[in-house]
Amino acid sequence: MKLITHNMLTSKILKNVVTGYPLKIHAVKAELKKADFQPDFIARMIKKIDYKTLYQAAETLGYAEGMPKTEILNEEDMNNEETLKKLHEVLLEIEVIEGDLECPETGRKFPINNGIPNMLVNEEEL
């Protein structure tokens, strides 16, 4: 699971959960694997992602250094190639292989195995 995927996941499907976002990451095993840098893609994704969530996730995994420490990226950051490269690394190069995602409201944990988060819930939880 890359952080771009994490940025989109919520546990709102659980009964009585209001936002279920962002999910806390508990990484047992994470890797960094190089990918081609596509500035246009990153620039476009920045508008979709929740930056605060991305920052927190990167911080949890120890990769936040070099990211603008802010809640929302400003225009200048979005046009700064160095920043975009850093965001590229955080969004697309870090891969959580083993661990959990935790619902911020209920503490329910969703396992990540082999890089795949399992977001299935039991009938009683719906």
Binding site: K2, T5, Q38, F41, P117, N118
Partner: peptide
């Protein structure tokens, strides 16, 4: 050109 690994999530279409 974008991602080096397919992103997949196990989940239910209803939820």
């Amino acid at each position: 050109t974008i991602c080096n690994k397919n992103q997949v999530v196990i989940c239910d279409n209803l939820y």
